[in-house]
Simulated assay, not measured.
Amino acid sequence: MSGTTADSATTICPDGCTSTDSDGYDYSGYPEPCNKNEVQKFNRILQPCIYSLLFILGLVGNGLVLGTYIHHKRWKAMTDMYLLNLAIADILFLITLPFLAASSQSGWGFGKPMCVIMQILYKMNVYSSFLFLMCVSVDRYFVIVRATVAHRLRSKRVRYSRFVSLIVWIVSLFLSLQQLIYAQVEIHHGTICSVSYQDSINIWIKVVTPILQMVLGFFLPLFVMIFCYSVIVKTLLEARNFEKHKAIKVILAVVLIFIIFQAPYNILNIINIMDTMRGSGLHCSDSKVRDIALQVTSCLAYTRCCLNPILYVFVGVKFRNNLLKLLSHLGFIKKKQRTASTTRPMSVLNTDTSSTLAL
């Protein structure tokens, strides 16, 4: 996370830009800094618009999730606990977006302590969000595919979910130690809040840390989700249930949106890691394209915070009913009589251990 721009590292002109100082010395053998004014202008337009929209939509969606869970105290299943923590993680992440939007206009002006806090909140909640999505898929796997085991452990599931949630937050904090140690406020194409390594830091620390973050924070959740949902789809296809096709569509949407929205940003990060390992600089024009691509793909990845409430919660019949009751209690809507859609029999997918999802 950089405060204003995608100024990752100082980029040079490897072709060798010719310049002569006033003292008559020829500096043509030295590379010149890459001017990224157009990248900054692009970010000054993109970030405030996208971040403000995501902040409002994400805060409303996740706020409704949080309010509904608190009002109805729906913590009777493992998935409920994971979805509650997922909403908290998304909200904490969304808090960082106004700071990013503001710093894109005038640079980072909130000081180093706030820089460190924002860096930690940013990374910690990105990873915790991925890991909680993984936990949801694992819980769905046991409820649908291993229903006997899930029922036998029914009385202990909430206790287990609290322990797993604590582990997820600890792992996310561990993955964010890089931000805690190396977050700095620097003067680089303006004042920015970024993670900056000292020159004395071993190159492998710069490489291994991002790789570890990538593996535990993206690839592990992705592979677990693909495995669990693949087995779930196979089980649903074999079940005789009128809602199975709807459930399969939701599952495919969950996986595809996770990949489509998150993969481009992570692919670019992998390319940056490879460039760091090679120790090679980018041509100025290539660096500008890379910076803009990082900004666009990061905005795409952040959109997932707005989609989580829709895909993982609002598809649930029980949750929709609880949400309507909450809005009615607050006076936003009038009470309506129960319809057939709210009283229809629950399918095998909506068991007592699946109190909010239609999965």
Score class of each variant (00 low, 15 high):
C305P: 01
V116I: 15
L175D: 02
S287P: 03
T191Q: 09
S285M: 11
D199F: 05
D15K: 12
I310S: 05
S298I: 03
L252F: 11
R162C: 11
K335P: 03
I273E: 07
N322M: 12
Y122I: 02
S355D: 08
Q262P: 01
L86H: 01
R44P: 02
Q184H: 11
I120T: 07
L326C: 08
M81V: 15
R338T: 12
C228S: 13
M78I: 03
A247D: 02
Y265S: 08
F93E: 00
V313E: 00
C115A: 14
F93S: 03
C306Y: 00
F130K: 01
V171A: 12
P98S: 07
S176T: 10
G217H: 05
S328N: 15
L84Q: 02
W169S: 01
R154Y: 05
T209I: 14
H151G: 03
A340Q: 10
F242I: 10
S155T: 11
H245M: 08
N350H: 06
Q47I: 15
L268K: 02
D15Q: 10
L326Q: 06
Q295L: 11
V149N: 06
L83S: 02
M124K: 04
T4R: 01
L59N: 08
T339Y: 04
G58L: 03
M214K: 06
G67V: 12
F142Q: 06
K123T: 04
K112N: 09
I187T: 13
F110R: 01
S104Y: 06
P309K: 00
D139R: 02
F132K: 00
W204S: 14
S194A: 13
V250Q: 14
P48G: 09
L236W: 03
Q178G: 15
L175R: 03
T351P: 05
M214V: 04
P14W: 09
I205Y: 13
D80Y: 04
Y25E: 12
A340Y: 09
F93V: 03
A183K: 04
L83V: 07
C305Q: 07
F319W: 09
M1C: 09
Q295N: 13
K206I: 10
F258L: 10
F110Y: 15
S155I: 08
V250E: 09
L330R: 12
D286M: 07
G29M: 07
P48R: 09
I88V: 15
T297G: 07
L327Q: 05
D199S: 14
D291S: 09
T5E: 05
V116G: 02
K206Y: 06
Y27I: 01
R44H: 11
L177A: 05
I267W: 13
C34S: 06
I203L: 12
Y229Q: 05
C13G: 06
I95A: 11
S28N: 14
V39R: 04
T148P: 01
K288R: 14
L66T: 10
Y25T: 14
L54S: 01
G63A: 07
Q262K: 11
A102L: 14
L66K: 05
A247W: 00
I120E: 00
S128I: 00
L166C: 09
R157T: 10
V289S: 12
A150F: 05
R162Y: 15
I226C: 12
Y82I: 04
D90T: 09
A263S: 15
C13A: 13
